[in-house]
């Protein structure tokens, strides 16, 4: 093998792609030609640089935890259902489509606020109508409470949290509901992806104060048009979509025209959640 032929093989040599015989021939050339050896050394140093530089990407905080949560989601306590990443969503029943302007919002996103808190009056609605959106809300709520979705940003600064949410979800929230009235303080934010490739589907902000699963509330803000609640659940009097399930309650409302949909999900009594929803609806626009 000539030096030129050896030089031609420098990349496959350094990539470990040559046969034993070819490697031996290249190495014989290297031993006999210092300039050739220097060229190989320079190439090797460059390859090492490329590998190091290519890997120089900061992985998102909690990546492995989220992967584990995606692969092995915690079992729901009372009403298990398939994880949407592992199995296709069930066929929709009476799919509700928002106006085209809303649908054009495109990639799904959500903000989840985990709240704890209060006790209020009595339940006024007994509606239980299911759709995939409801299951996704409930599942995310359960995963956050179970520690399956970590916070990527720990801060009580609402402006930072809004910035995080907007960046991660490509939403344009101006503010988050201020629930200090209920002694609830924002603690941080994180992201949940329900579906691969299409982008993040949920970004949540967690509030301090959650002590038990039953006390926690999740406020979801999303622009996921295909997963909106069923119109059968819409309550004309309050302007909320309301779902009452034996294991959880869910209240949803539209933030503003062409804006996202906000939802509360919790095991708390519906009457309590309605009061929080009224406050949140008044603020989160």
């Amino acid at each position: 093998m000539t030096a030129e032929e050896a030089l031609q093989r420098r990349q496959p040599y350094l990539d470990g792609e040559l046969s034993a015989g070819e490697r031996a021939e290249v190495e014989a050339c290297l031993a006999a030609d210092p300039a050739l050896r220097e060229a190989f050394e320079a190439e090797a140093a460059f390859h090492a640089f490329l590998k190091r530089a290519s890997a120089h990407v900061e992985a998102p905080e909690g990546l492995v935890t989220r992967l584990a949560g995606k692969l092995w989601p915690p079992e729901p306590e009372a009403r298990p259902f398939a994880h949407p990443a592992a199995a296709p969503l069930p066929p929709r029943r009476r799919a509700f489509r928002l106006p085209a302007a809303v649908s054009s919002l495109g990639m799904a996103a959500a903000v989840m606020l985990v709240l704890a808190g209060m006790t209020f009056g009595v339940a006024r609605f007994q509606i239980a109508h299911e759709c995939p959106y409801i299951e996704l809300c409930q599942q995310t709520h359960a995963r956050i409470l179970g520690g399956g979705i970590p916070m990527a940003l720990r801060s009580a600064d609402a402006s930072k949290l809004v910035k995080y949410v907007n960046t991660r979800s490509e939403m344009n929230l101006e503010r988050l509901p201020d629930l200090l009235e209920f002694n609830l303080e924002a603690a941080g934010a994180g992201t949940v992806s329900f579906r691969a490739i299409e982008g993040p589907n949920a970004t949540f902000v967690r509030y301090n104060g959650c002590t038990t699963g039953d006390a926690c509330l999740s406020l979801i803000v999303h622009n996921w048009p295909e997963e909106y609640p069923d119109p059968m659940n819409f309550d004309q009097r309050t302007g909320f979509w309301i779902v009452e399930h034996p294991d959880y309650r869910l209240i949803s409302w539209k933030g503003y025209e062409n804006g996202p949909l906000y939802s509360l999900v919790s095991r708390r009594p519906l009457s309590e959640m309605l009061k929080i929803a009224e406050l949140a609806r008044a603020q989160a626009k």
């Binding site: 290519s54 989220r66 692969l71 990443a85 992201t191 992806s193 691969a196 490739i197 299409e198 993040p200």
Partner: peptide
């Protein structure tokens, strides 16, 4: 890192990784 270098988009990269693991 590879997904990010491929997609050049942080969110898409993580989703691609998640889907790959699934």
């Amino acid at each position: 890192a590879a997904a990010y270098r491929l997609t050049r988009h942080a969110a898409r990269a993580e989703d691609l990784v998640q889907e790959s693991y699934v």
